[in-house]
Measured scan of single mutants.
Amino acid sequence: SEFQINEQVLASWSDSRFYPAKVTAVNKDGTYTVKFYDGVVQTVKHIHVKA
Rank of each mutant, 00 (worst) to 15 (best):
E2N: 11
S1A: 13
D38L: 07
D29I: 03
P20N: 06
H46V: 12
T24M: 15
K28E: 13
E7H: 04
T33M: 06
V26R: 04
T43D: 11
E2Q: 12
V34L: 07
S16M: 11
T31F: 04
V40N: 13
N27F: 08
D38V: 04
A51Q: 12
F3D: 00
K28A: 13
F36L: 04
S1Y: 12
T31G: 01
H46A: 15
G39V: 04
R17G: 12
V9Q: 02
F18S: 02
A11G: 02
G39F: 04
V44Q: 00
K35H: 09
S12M: 15
W13S: 11
K28D: 13
F18P: 05
E7W: 08
V40Q: 14
R17D: 13
H46P: 14
D29F: 02
G39H: 04
I47K: 09
W13R: 15
K28W: 09
Q42A: 15
D15I: 04
H48I: 07
K22W: 13
S12E: 14
V41T: 12
D15Q: 05
N6I: 05
E7P: 01
F36R: 08
Y37Q: 11
S14W: 10
G39Q: 03
A11F: 05
L10G: 01
A21I: 03
T24Y: 07
V49K: 14
F3Q: 02
V26M: 06
F36N: 00
H48V: 07
V44C: 06
S16P: 05
W13F: 12
I5T: 05
V26A: 06
D15H: 08
N6F: 08
G30P: 01
T33H: 00
V41Q: 07
T33L: 08
T43Q: 08
Q4H: 12
K45I: 10
V41H: 07
S14Y: 10
D38F: 15
Q42T: 10
A51T: 08
Q8M: 14
Y32D: 01
N27M: 05
L10F: 11
F3M: 03
A51W: 07
H48Q: 14
T33W: 05
